[in-house]
Amino acid sequence: MPIIQDTYRPLFFFKNGHVSTVYSGLIRRVKGFKQERERMTLPDDDFLDLDWSYSEEKTNKIIILLHGLEGDAHRPYMTATAKLFNKNKVDAVCVNFRGCSGSDNLKYRSYHSGATEDLEAVINYLLKNKDYNEIFIKGFSLGGNMVLKYLGERNEVPKEIKAVVAVSVPCSLEGSARMLHTLQNRLYHDRFKKHLVDRLRIKQQQFSDILSLEELNSIKTLYDFDNVYTAKAHSFKDGADYYNQCSCLQFLQNIKTPTLIINALNDSFLSHECYPVKEAKQNPNLFLEMPKHGGHVGFVDRKNIYYNENRALEFVLRKS
């Protein structure tokens, strides 16, 4: 599918990728929005907390929203999308990945970029217990990689899934990890690492027979975290094996569901491998939009409705 020409024209100061990223992550607020929480039991007896919001009118359409690394269902990029879709007659369920809802999950494992079994569990739960015949999915960053991998690694996906949008996607996990370890991203890197290690300290106390305090204290970088925890907890050989197996790039050619990827060219988290131009040109179901501006999960726009949110609504409703 030809590359889509974007129409994003941000205000001058939001043309800077770091300004857009930081403002959207730390300053933006979404008001007048409520969610209802439901706890869903997973096949391995762990759980996910799902935060629901609804259209004022009864609808058979729902959007599943997937957050990024160390995010949750209450992040503004999640709630703003849910609010916009609710206003356009689509229910929304914001998924908190394992351990991200404010309650520690039960298992030693947690979540990662390729944990499509948990996304599949959510989809199966909706199909079995809810009355929706049109399902849309929107994933951000890590969540974007997850849903693209989900679509491409299976021969078939449920017919109810009509369209998918993925924003600021690290299509190459190794490439994105490499970028996060550069000097320009040092503050982001350190913030992610601190949050991850702080939560792992709690888990270490519960699973000290699996993870020693010495191993925990050896984590100095995100590479270390993925080698010490992510890989071992989720049955990968090491961090490199995790990146290799879970990067969605290798699965894009197989996607049969209409899918839109929006990756800003000034996203400092993304390496050149994260812009799948060749894959989009060769797959009629894959649409790639690469705005010049936007940062990482930024795309600040007018009236507190972001560019990626409007584009997602336009794309999925056109495919429904």
Rank of each mutant, 00 (worst) to 15 (best):
M78S: 06
T116K: 05
M40K: 09
H272L: 04
A264S: 14
A92G: 06
A80K: 11
Q184H: 10
E36F: 12
K220I: 00
E153C: 12
L26I: 11
T59R: 04
L126E: 02
K58Q: 14
T182G: 05
K278M: 06
D190F: 08
K87A: 15
Q204V: 10
L119T: 06
K303A: 13
I123Y: 06
D118C: 13
D91Y: 07
N129W: 08
E215S: 13
A163Q: 08
E279A: 13
G71T: 09
C171Y: 03
D6R: 04
T21L: 08
D51S: 15
Y229E: 03
R75T: 09
A115G: 06
P76T: 15
D72R: 07
F140P: 00
Q245E: 14
D91F: 05
L151T: 03
L211E: 01
E70Q: 13
D224Q: 03
D131T: 14
Y229C: 04
Y150A: 02
V165K: 01
F287L: 02
K34L: 10
G114L: 04
Q205T: 10
L260T: 06
L213M: 11
R9G: 00
K15D: 06
S320A: 15
G68D: 04
I161W: 08
D91V: 07
I261H: 00
P2V: 01
S268G: 00
K83F: 07
L200H: 00
R186S: 11
A82E: 04
T41S: 04
T257Y: 05
D301W: 09
G114Y: 02
S320F: 08
A166V: 03
N86E: 02
F14A: 06
V22I: 15
Q250V: 07
N96L: 06
Y229K: 04
K194A: 12
S218L: 10
P284R: 04
S113G: 09
